[in-house]
Write a protein that binds this DNA or RNA. Structure first.
Lengths: 129, 129
DNA sequence: TCGAACCCTCACATCAGTGTGAAGGCAAGG
DNA sequence: CCTTGCCTTCACACTGATGTGAGGGTTCGA
């Protein structure tokens, strides 16, 4: 699939698809004429990248963890040459992600609590007034 | 408390404390000589802001939700003049935050699963070798 | 064969968040 | 009084993510 189609199917501007490639997040093939040729799975990859970027991860973090995020099923990864160094690095990323989750969840709860406290009138009048 | 102390206690450079004020996130008093005078609660406020920024929220989003995040206890807020418009806006923010959480949790799980799958040797040799 | 709609690279611009330094006022201690 | 260290504003610069446009090649249908 060419870049235009991938852009249409993901809603991500072509500019960004090229940028993600430049950042080492995508690795499309090239056809004879130099056009980028994306695999079908790129659609999911791009959505993955978008979600992580929106969640405050940098392209650098994403680049390092992306190889270990393929699918929920496939585990086609270099299990052997995973140095303790890399493992520790991954664990660090996990921790940072967890910290973000905690922070976001805490604030989501506060916002929800506020909304709930302020308007306890969902859709029908159940108390007299 | 003056800006230097707040900076020391939060680990956030004074430059950023001034920036957050410029963005409407902090509202310190001023002493006679023009120095910023922060309340004790500013320490928590700043940590709150940092967490949200790290989690990918913009200062604009933070500015709009911050008034509704005071403490877990206090609900000193303008409960009355909360227009349905604002409520919907808040709900939108909650939804976006939830989406981020989902995305992060999903990827955290994948990373954890990978690590767990790849090194099932915690600390002792339990199998012969 | 021509034009529309793709694709390419290159490069400058914008925005938010942040670093850094200049130029100067205020406060406290030797 | 003078130094030291805090504070003030102003302003320029950088980075990462993104927008936008110029200049030019490719594909395809009328």
């Amino acid at each position: 699939m060419k870049i235009g189609e991938l852009s249409r199917r993901t809603g991500v501007p072509t500019r960004l698809l090229r940028y993600y490639e430049e950042q080492g997040l995508l690795h499309p093939d090239r056809t004879d004429n130099g056009y980028r040729d994306y695999a079908e799975s790129s659609v999911q990859d791009v959505q993955q990248i978008r979600g992580l970027l929106d969640s405050g991860l940098t392209t650098e973090m994403i680049r390092t963890i992306l190889p270990y995020l393929s699918g929920p099923d496939e585990i086609l990864l270099p299990a052997e040459h995973l140095t303790p160094r890399t493992a520790a690095l991954l664990q660090g990323h996990i921790d940072r992600i967890q910290a973000r989750i905690d922070c976001l969840a805490r604030n989501r709860d506060r916002l929800s609590a506020y909304l709930a406290a302020v308007r306890p009138e969902p859709d029908a009048e159940m108390v007299d007034r």
